[in-house]
Amino acid sequence: MRRFSNTILTGLPMLLWALSALADTDGVFDEYRAMFGDENPAIFVIDEGEELWLTAAGPKAVTLENCDLGLGPGVVEGAYAQLPRYFQDAQRVQDLESRLEYCMIHLQGRSAADIHARPYSLRGDLGTEMEALVAWIAEQSRGLPIAPGQAHVQERNAYALGESLFYYRAGPHDFSCATCHGQSGKRIRLQALPDLTGHDGAAEAYSSWPAYRISQGLVRTMGWRMRDCFRQQRMPELIMGSEASVALQTYLAVNAAGAAMAAPGLKR
């Protein structure tokens, strides 16, 4: 009798440990996140972003302080939470990266070719200007409800296009976004997969990007994440701020609408 209960006692912790690793990955990773507390290395990138906003650049030697992110020239607080949206001057729905590109070109006189030469950091880089600006601007929407524009017909078209792209199966593996993100309670290896077709999953995903990616030592944007998804889907390279990128972000943001922004987030 005694030996039997000893076996159970020694076996139980092993079983619980194994189960916690198997069942839902959240338990193990929540503990890991809790160890960080409020610390997020993104604080440095956020500071750099603010500096860049206030620094004169380009042939016109002008800062970005008059850039209109949708709430009026120079209004940064709350702007990220209301993107993507239609911009009259650009005549298209834009996400933050394409909007910043627009301001860099029209206010500062910089060239699209230069901006797209290095759209995202490579491993070992210290970070791009765009990543720093996105980190700082997203921080200024922390706690505010996600509220992308849907009043304009082009905004609604972007949503429809995003939804269509979400289910678009292609490439040698026949993958679509829905392959991984079209149902709840699934994981790939040990990485939990949010269901992006519903509010909760979309909110969890959209509210936490941009994010400091620990494994890369860099702040990564929502646009970058989608580009990397397409790479893993065996598809070609998604261009920063492109129509498809903006449409997919619109689809996510609308599905997530109402949830509070919590970016820059912290990810593995």
């Binding site: 296009l161 792209l165 678009y168 397409f230 598809m235 070609p236 390279e237 998604l238 261009i239 492109s242 129509e243 498809a244 990128s245 449409a247």
Partner: peptide, 8 residues
């Protein structure tokens, strides 16, 4: 949209 949004 994908054709104009992607690159080789």
């Amino acid at each position: 949209a994908l054709r104009s949004s992607m690159a080789d």
